[in-house]
Design a protein around this nucleic acid. Structure first.
Lengths: 194, 194, 194, 194
DNA sequence: GATGAATGAGGATTCATTCAT
DNA sequence: CATGAATGAATCCTCATTCAT
């Protein structure tokens, strides 16, 4: 019930389905406007039954966030495994982050990003080190690619500009349109390159 | 009681103080977690009394947002009045938006940006044309500056990247640090220029 | 709303009526089995309205208890004012405690006695010094009457035997029967005297 | 599964261990604040499994109470078997009741006494005759010892004073202190004797 | 305009109980 | 017998909103 490891929850388990549904609802309606009943309804159980799987609503949020970083981390690692050149690596990372933000695989990084302050301090604490590790990954990569990056903007600021740009896509980008995720990736890459 | 014009509310009036307090609370705690009582307390009246000034809590949010765009529009207009060159105009606009996002002058664009979905559809409707007018302003300016902008990114995408970059500063930038608002402005400008 | 002094709450005020009703319910059904709705119904308001007067259900319990000791203290003081001889003073004290236990004036000492562990540690803390002061009063009186008391039982044990005897009357004594409160008082007095 | 006889449950059986744990919890936390899960945890099974042994939580309470009177009755009978003089018999009975109240042998008379109103009317009915038989025992003994008892207090009142005194010890007496159970017995005896 | 008591519709959470495995 | 997921009713509490004074 509490299982806080790097491994991902089986998406077919009750817990997995709950997490999936919660992520979707938190992303679209926001944490506060999503009721426990909403989540329960979404997976076809009654609201009281949720508390068999999670102690509190806050814990659901925490678990959703944890899943999203873990999933992102796993996918990024495997994506980077076979890539050598700095620019190609950046492209892969941007792509991964974009996919996560858009909620592919039901693991919405957007929830982690935009509902962070809804999470209780205790659960924030638990997630802080993963978040930091993740950002460290980016900074390392940026440092390794300095010569290709836009000059005149400090790397950590540039990363934050990029974050903001990608995070913000939740509010305007829909994959169905003329603009593919690849197009978007390419443009975001251009944004930070020389 | 509901006065919806382009003119700004007198900040010394009861309504003005309420709006100021609400903006600050919405920005820091979020709309849902801010109670009407919180707002009332902040200006030293009781919660029931708020409803002499606003029909609903949703209307307060609407008014806060309206004030923030209006204030931004006013300030941007006056800033642009004496500037001719495209790049300088973009710099001024970025500067204005950054100030609004950071909540300078008590007008928090951040609330408009991040609490938009908390606003009722009816009030969203009312604000839509102002928001669009504002975005049109940017697009026009971008179009006029095409030759200076980073190539390969469609203007409307570039504007959204910029928006995201600037909006996101709420979550990491504090003016007290080593980085001044001017520094930030300059870097954001570099981001979109060739 | 929090007013924790020695003065008693006006029994005609909303708070007073609430306290009265709660005391009665706590005494007859017990704290846990009494719902906030029960209390509200008893005074003709809705359950939500209770929280205008008390922050939590636990605070209601605390207030009921406080009122009961205070009321007892006040009545005891006035009863003792004109009495000099040790035995007569003990009789008066027993009478006062019996009246309080039986819930005369709606201030049920029985609640303080039998629901003590239902009270939150924080509120227990607040009441502890009053309870102790009250017991001290008895001990002082017992010490002053040593020669009239049953020998062979340590005073503090004797007081506790008496407490238990009187507290227990809630469960079997009804004033309507053949046994008057005066009879009971006299018998309880005999119990502890030589 | 519901075996309601005068014989005591084998303390090593599942039912026996459950009863023991429940008694302890009911005595310390109270019936309402003890969850079925608490009881299950205490004996190392899951909450659902309890219902293989008892139909309802109320039945557990009933069984605990039944065990406690039965155990008391058994012990009292054997204690009285070899005693002839009235005063000695009273002493033995007081001792037995004190032991039961204090929860010796895991059989808590305190639960029967203080949680009586938590028991459903149906189960109260079932236990009533045992309780009455028990009280009859006392009254008979009191009647046989009239000449040694404190005069001026009707026997049934005196018995209730004694009950209250002994029951109340749960709230203040700990066997670890300077006062032994024998001391307490002697003092309680003195209380009712001439 | 302000007050503050009251409303009433929810909201998160608890818990005894059931039942298929 | 035990499990553990699910039930569903009930509980305390919150909060935007109303309204008589």
């Amino acid at each position: 019930m509490e299982q806080r490891t790097t491994s991902l929850t089986d998406p077919d388990s009750a817990r997995g389905k709950l997490l999936q549904a919660a992520a979707e609802l938190f992303r679209t309606k926001g944490y506060d406007r999503t009721t426990v009943r909403d989540i329960a309804n979404a997976v076809g159980i009654l609201s009281g039954s949720i508390f068999h799987h999670f102690k509190t609503k806050d814990d659901i949020l925490g678990a959703v966030m944890e899943e999203s970083v873990n999933s992102l981390l796993v996918r990024m690692e495997s994506a980077l495994a076979e890539i050598d050149t700095p620019v190609a690596r950046l492209r892969a990372m941007i792509r991964c982050e974009l996919e996560s933000i858009q909620g592919e695989n039901g693991h919405a990084l957007a929830v982690l990003v935009y509902e962070w302050r809804s999470l209780s301090p205790e659960n924030q604490q638990k997630l802080l080190h993963i978040r930091e590790a993740y950002e460290q990954l980016w900074l390392t990569e940026f440092t390794g690619a300095t010569e290709h990056l836009k000059p005149g903007i400090e790397p950590f600021v540039l990363r934050r500009f990029l974050s903001g740009s990608l995070y913000w896509t939740t509010y305007w980008y829909k994959e169905s349109g003329a603009l593919t995720l690849s197009d978007l990736t390419e443009m975001a890459l251009k944004l930070i390159l020389k």
